[in-house]
């Protein structure tokens, strides 16, 4: 059920009660709001925030809360809850705190209703019947808004970590190094391929050293993917040298029947870079040696 449409099904008598309730909550805004903020502090919720901040947010939530009771539309509240969550999530506010404060407000308001209608038990019952569903809907809306926002933040962070986890480093003209550390799941494997192929094009690389020293083990699916990546790189005109294969990974590759003619492997990263330089036609010589050679050549 769409929560926004829920109010249309509410009978007129209930709406009447809600209207009375709304004006009661508006009249007692100052006092109830303070009571709520006090209860929040008492329950040691939102400890990451200052008293003034809590009071400011409490005011906004309170007003939004009463608006929902009046209009039946949770849209504005949901937007506010998301916005609030965006601001407080980085400060470490937890889900239980957010749910806690909304339930506290529900409680504070219910108590004030008890007080107001205590003389007429039947009326109190009807008021609570009107109030409860609306209050519950508000609690759900705020909690869901918070959780959704937090999930969004988590997704963004995962994305960022993935981007960072497969750096494609140009170390020399035409030479890329791709150090991979940690577990490669299928999603990361695909990302790795995309970044590598893009990197080859961008840097006009001819040789790529893919170092998997930091990868303890891979499953056959990822192993196949790795082989495919090497083949795809070749189609772009680049040679991939894989270094640092653990014995487990070697075993996996043998098990999937990898074509060794297509895989260029060297024991460690250092050896891989040396091989890459050889392929690229570089020769790295210590300076002393190089000077000595020049002297010999001059003498000769």
């Amino acid at each position: 059920m769409d929560p926004i449409d829920a109010q249309s099904a509410v009978p007129e008598a209930t709406l009447e009660l809600l209207r009375a309730l709304v004006s009661h909550l508006r009249e007692n805004r100052t006092q109830l709001r303070e009571e709520w903020a006090r209860r929040i502090t008492e329950a040691q919720l939102l400890t990451a925030m200052s008293k003034e901040e809590i009071f400011a947010e409490a005011t906004s939530i309170y007003d939004n809360y009463v608006d929902v009771l009046e209009t039946g539309s949770v849209e504005a509240l949901l937007a506010y809850a998301r916005n609030l969550s965006e601001r407080i999530i980085p400060r470490g506010v937890q889900t239980n705190e957010v749910v806690g404060i909304v339930l506290l407000l529900r409680d504070v308001l219910a108590r004030s209703l008890f007080k107001k209608y205590q003389a007429d038990f039947a009326l109190l019952n009807r008021v609570l019947d009107a109030y409860e569903p609306a209050a519950n809907r508000i609690a759900v809306t705020v909690s869901v808004g918070f959780v959704q926002e937090r999930e969004r933040v988590i997704r963004e962070q995962q994305e960022a970590i993935r981007e960072l986890s497969t750096p494609v480093l140009p170390v020399r003209e035409r030479l890329l190094i791709l150090p991979i550390i940690g577990v490669i799941d299928p999603l990361r494997a695909r990302q790795l391929t995309e970044q590598l192929l893009r990197g080859i094009r961008l840097n006009r690389a001819k040789v790529v050293v893919m170092d998997i020293t930091g990868v303890p083990t891979i499953d056959t699916k990822v192993a196949n993917h790795l082989v495919q990546t090497v083949e795809a790189a070749r189609l772009l005109g680049a040679t991939v040298i894989v270094t640092g294969l653990s014995s487990e990974i070697a075993q996996t590759l043998v098990n999937i029947g990898v074509d060794l003619g297509k895989m260029n492997t060297v024991g460690d990263l250092q050896g891989g870079i040396e091989e890459a330089e050889r392929l690229l036609g570089y020769k790295v010589v210590p300076m002393i040696e190089s000077i000595e050679q020049q002297i010999i050549q001059q003498k000769a």
């Binding site: 080859i200 495919q228 189609l235």
Partner: peptide, 9 residues
């Protein structure tokens, strides 16, 4: 790059 990957797949 995309074509290369889809070819090997």
């Amino acid at each position: 790059p995309e074509v290369a990957f889809s070819m090997v797949q």
